[in-house]
């Protein structure tokens, strides 16, 4: 029954930040199965970004367990770098490589990490740029692009590694309002194509439209999760109701 095995699973995860003395995650468990689109919502500082960052071990956990594609990341000799190639990530601040042009940004990791041949990587990168509507920007530098364009390049860069899961950490929060739409369109497109996604977002309408499961976090814990329809229109949890009822 391999199809039931989650692509990523975290079990009873705790995260302490020693420097600030805060507990960002308290006994959090979550599994992501192939084909799911999970949207994580919650107030600022509730630990949703931290949770997302533990899913590809960018943030090591203080306690609990993380499995990526059935491999425990805590096992001796676990090849974290290898496991991360299966998990794409898109950041709030884009984090494109400013010293490389757009095409080089996409091609760097497939060439250096997967050691794939240049010709096939290049063809895939150009196809992905076309998919996100930036085929004409292949030779531009990130600094010459708008925020929305940069974020679309960042999505294409993560996709160029041909990951099984894509993680999005508030991908539209750093964007001017008029650019939010173009990035959400690319993500909606991706969800329709069947990509497994885990999205931390404040865009409730978008979450409701694309999610297969919605997760509500508060104070480092998962408080409630449900199908998006019930989650947003008829929340059965009082704290979620309060969160959704807040204006904005």
């Amino acid at each position: 029954m391999t199809e039931l095995r989650p692509l990523i699973e975290v079990r009873h995860v705790d995260k302490h930040f020693a420097s600030t003395g805060t507990r960002a995650l308290k006994d959090v468990s979550l599994s992501i199965h192939a084909g799911e689109v999970i949207c994580i919502v919650g107030p600022s500082g509730c630990g949703k970004s931290t949770l997302l960052r533990t899913l590809n071990v960018l943030e090591p956990v203080s306690a609990g367990e993380v499995w990526i594609e059935g491999v425990s990341v805590h096992a001796r000799g676990a090849r974290l770098d290898r496991l991360r190639t299966k998990v794409g990530m898109v950041f709030q601040q884009f984090n494109l490589f400013p010293h490389l042009d757009v095409l080089e940004n996409l091609m760097l990791a497939p060439l250096k990490v997967l050691r794939q041949p240049v010709a096939s990587v290049r063809a895939r990168a150009l196809a992905l740029l076309d998919q996100v509507g930036l085929a004409d920007k292949a030779r531009s530098r990130p600094g010459q692009l708008s925020g929305g364009q940069q974020q679309r390049v960042a999505i294409a860069r993560a996709l160029c590694m041909q990951p099984d899961v894509m993680l999005f950490d508030e991908p539209t929060s750093a964007l001017d309002p008029e650019m939010v739409g173009e990035v959400l369109d690319v993500m909606r497109d991706l969800a329709l194509k069947g990509m497994t996604m885990c999205i931390v977002t404040h865009e409730m309408a978008f979450a409701r439209a694309v999610a297969t499961r919605a997760v509500f976090m508060e104070a480092g814990s998962i408080v409630w999760q449900d199908a998006p329809e019930r989650f947003f229109s008829n929340p059965e949890n009082a704290r979620l109701r309060a969160f959704l009822g807040r204006p904005g």
Partner: peptide, 26 residues
């Protein structure tokens, strides 16, 4: 910025590769 290393590591680069291809050139 730290985000540069994080982006490189999230793409599967080792610490050495992230330094060599992303951080050091900048």
């Amino acid at each position: 910025p730290r985000g540069q290393t994080e982006a490189a590591r999230s793409l599967g680069m080792s610490a050495f590769q992230a330094m060599r291809h992303v951080v050091l050139p900048q």
